[in-house]
Amino acid sequence: MKGGIRAWEGLVAEGIPEAGMAYFSPATRPQEMIALAWLLEDGTCKFYESIANMMEDQEARGFFHDLKRSEENHKTTLWKMCEEISGRTPSSEFPATVISGKPAGDVMEGGMVVSEALKWSKGKTLKEILELSISLETNSYDLYLKMEQKAEDRNSKQIFKTLSDEEKKHLERLTSLFLKTL
């Protein structure tokens, strides 16, 4: 690439090559990977919902509510994926029926603990919150791309491809709103 990384004006992810991958290491079956990904989406849902409720600006409030709904759709996609792979409808207790131990606290995409992200967000401007969201979603996008490359079975590859495609769409929406705040 001419000019190397300095010429790149797009989004960049941060962290070591294995960043975030440890989260998925307890998963030995595709269903477990899906369940862990579902928990991340659930955490992100909670984050966007709380952020939406913190916003005074109606457009920003609506935007974060939309993102929350989008994360809800991801959860449904993952739920359906689990159904397809296992050949039966996951119980209402999903994902607890698939994974034995739940990670401590609600963790969201990008590996951040939801309560910490919300604590940080208090009193911050929309631009600052969008910067945090873009940073978390970029790291999440990076993680899913690398997990897709690393996955050995077709199902797991497909799971992470679906997730990375969705993250890419989110990033486009977030950066578009961010540009409006400049």
Partner: peptide, 19 residues
Amino acid sequence: IDVRQPEEYEQGHLPGAQL
């Protein structure tokens, strides 16, 4: 592929790049 040093990769890399 990112052919820089690990510290540089850690500070910022193209999403999905392998170090």
